[in-house]
């Protein structure tokens, strides 16, 4: 197993992503993620002193939309996609009760 990422870190990230992983999955992902990070480390070893940090590959800035109202979509259609709805709203588990 690589030291790029620990099993505990995988468990933590899975928790943040609300993923429930079986023990064998944790092992598998720890190994796979380590390989991904290994690849990133390879890229890090390149000399990029002359390359400016690039978050957006396209040479574009200031792409704006006019502040004009357009049609929204049909509420019933939207709510029909939800696992549960009530009073025209999405019904979800209690917001702060996730831990309990």
């Amino acid at each position: 197993m690589s030291d790029r990422i620990t099993r505990d870190e995988v468990v933590h990230v899975a928790k943040l992503a609300r993923l429930e992983l079986a023990p064998h999955e944790i092992d598998a992902f720890t190994e796979q993620l380590a390989r991904v990070l290994e690849h990133a480390a390879d890229v890090e070893s390149l000399n990029v002193d002359d390359v400016p940090p690039t978050s957006h590959p396209l040479p574009l800035v200031n792409v704006f939309r006019e502040d004009v109202v357009t049609d929204s979509i049909d509420r019933d259609e939207v709510l029909a996609q939800a696992p549960a709805a009530e009073s025209h709203m999405f019904r979800v588990p209690p917001v702060l009760g996730e831990e309990r």
């Binding site: 939309r65 004009v68 109202v69 357009t70 049609d71 929204s72 009073s87």
Partner: peptide
């Protein structure tokens, strides 16, 4: 980020896209 109306007090889930 979209053309839905920014309006307080409308019927729930009517300004969505």
């Amino acid at each position: 980020f979209c053309g839905c109306a920014n309006q307080f007090g409308n019927e729930p889930n009517t300004n969505v896209c």
